[in-house]
Computed example of a mutant assay.
Amino acid sequence: MRWVTFDCFGTLVDWRHGILTGADLIAPGQGARLLETYIRHEADVQAESPAMRYRDVLAEALRRACAEEKVELGADDASVLGTTLPYWPVFPEVGAELSALRAAGWRLALLTNCDRDLIAGTRRRLPVPFEAVVTSEDAGAYKPSEAHFELFGSSYEPEVWVHVAQSYFHDMVPAHRLGLPRVWINRHDAEPADATILQQVQPDLHGLLEAVEAAQSGRAR
């Protein structure tokens, strides 16, 4: 069985847009500023509290970002990201590119830093079905821990396995440690800490089938 595993938020769903617009709802005009600060704090919260539910991670990281940026929060404002997450937009190329993978015989799975209830809402918006999902709630940890990958591997025993993700830190690094073929979706033209660990790199999902099969076979592209 051939599997492609995906990170969801940032790779298939526009996570940055979701954070920015959610922050703008509670602090109009401040979303862009809060986004960059939020990103730093989310990774810290996940590392400090790997068993914390993602809904609570979203709220705590937003509280910290607002405190740093001197933005006042109302009593229940910090819940805005967990509330709006199921409506964050899917990138426009996702449907066609994932459909091409399925037509070529690949099974699709999500390895997501998210809770089961939140990803259930997002799955209703994804244009193709996924055969498997591993959440942080299931793994008891947040990537870049290897727990998602280990749980998926032990549960489904894939014969061929390629991992696709936008986050270098959360996904490419642990996939490299585990020796998985991998495709980095570098949507924001980021500079990797170590480019030698990368295999296939592209700016979005267009042409994903070719990139996945090249990664699986070890071909340069």
Rank of each mutant, 00 (worst) to 15 (best):
V133A: 02
R53D: 12
E36G: 04
L58H: 01
M52P: 00
L58C: 04
G105C: 05
A139S: 13
E146R: 14
L110K: 06
A47C: 07
A61V: 00
A59Q: 03
E93D: 15
P28H: 11
G18Q: 02
A109W: 03
R33K: 14
L98Y: 03
A59T: 00
A78K: 06
G18A: 11
W15Q: 14
E137A: 15
G31M: 01
H41A: 04
R55F: 03
E146H: 12
D115V: 07
R125K: 15
A75I: 11
R63Y: 01
L81P: 00
R64N: 07
T37E: 14
P28A: 11
R16N: 14
E131K: 05
V128W: 08
S49P: 00
A47Q: 15
T37N: 12
G105T: 07
A59S: 11
D24A: 12
T112F: 01
I119Y: 03
K143T: 12
C114F: 12
T83G: 02
L62R: 01
G140E: 11
P129H: 09
T37W: 03
L73M: 08
F130V: 10
V94Y: 04
L101W: 04
Q46S: 05
A51L: 14
H17G: 08
L25A: 15
A109S: 06
R63P: 00
V134T: 12
P129S: 15
R33Y: 01
V133I: 14
I26V: 15
R64C: 07
D24R: 05
T122C: 15
K70P: 00
A109D: 04
V57G: 04
S49T: 11
A78Y: 01
K70L: 11
T83F: 06
D44P: 00
L118V: 13
C114R: 01
A141S: 15
A120N: 09
G140D: 13
S49G: 02
T112H: 06
R102V: 05
A132K: 10
P144C: 12
R64D: 07
D117H: 13
A141M: 10
P144E: 13
R123S: 10
E42V: 01
G95L: 10
E36A: 15
L85K: 01
Y87F: 13
Q46P: 02
A141T: 05
A139V: 08
F91E: 11
R55W: 06
G22K: 00
P89F: 06
I26N: 00
M52S: 06
P129Q: 11
